[in-house]
Design a protein around this nucleic acid. Structure first.
Length: 210
DNA sequence: CTCCCGATAT
DNA sequence: ATATCAGGAG
């Protein structure tokens, strides 16, 4: 079986197992998703959602972040970790969005990549989940781990993994595919102890311990 | 490559 | 005690 066929079988199985897989970061607009995604670095989505529940009530627009005292914003996002970096990134991004785009989150890859604290992973999350634009494939820690275990790539750098996945996965699935891998990665194909006995794609996995 | 960093699971 | 979590910048 060639790699594309194996990939399509994997996708079909995962869609059946996780029919409701979607973006797990709570948000009601592109701006909120951008902030939530910046906060999600090396932090669980559950923790991010806990923080943004209060954060999005207190900070509604770019001006609210830009005008806040850095130390106060840092405390408001502290429990997500890396809070100094994240606060600085958020304030820098908001200032740029205000100056260049009149407060609207841009809808192109290049414009998003120019924002501080935003690289391909965050840009792909915002474009895909807030704007419905299939700009690429989100590669986070779960997608990276599963793509390697499934041997959908032989690389470790996120950018190279994304390039391999964009070749293997049909573009209509670029947005949903990471949701499927993340759902599977969180519940079954875990980082420390993969539960291969419970895996619905075990027959397609070269790394299976079954 | 290193650094940033708190919360939770194992 | 240590690994891991929807990463990005220098």
């Amino acid at each position: 079986m060639d790699e594309k066929k194996r990939t399509s079988r994997i996708i079909a199985r995962l869609k059946r197992a996780y029919p409701d897989a979607k973006c797990s970061l709570n948000h009601t607009n592109p701006f909120e998703l951008l902030i939530a995604t910046i906060l999600s670095a090396q932090c669980t989505d559950g923790r991010v959602n806990l923080v943004t529940a209060d954060l999005f009530r207190k900070y509604r627009r770019c001006e609210d972040y830009v005008n806040a005292a850095p130390s106060e914003l840092e405390q408001d996002i502290r429990s997500t970790g890396f809070y100094r970096n994240k606060a600085k990134a958020i304030q820098g991004a908001c200032q740029m969005i205000l100056e260049r785009y009149a407060g609207r989150v841009p809808e192109t890859m290049d414009e998003l990549l120019a924002l501080p604290g935003v690289a391909r992973k965050t840009a792909n999350v915002v474009l895909g989940n807030a704007y419905g634009i299939a700009s690429g494939v989100v590669v986070d820690t779960h997608v990276s781990r599963l793509a390697q275990r499934l041997q959908l790539t032989e690389h470790e750098q996120p950018e190279k993994i994304e390039r391999d996945l964009m070749k293997l996965v049909p573009q209509r699935d670029w947005i949903n595919f990471p949701h499927l891998l993340i759902a599977h990665g969180r519940t079954v194909c875990k980082a420390r102890t993969p539960l291969c006995a419970d895996c619905v794609i075990e027959q397609y996995c070269p790394s299976s311990m079954k």
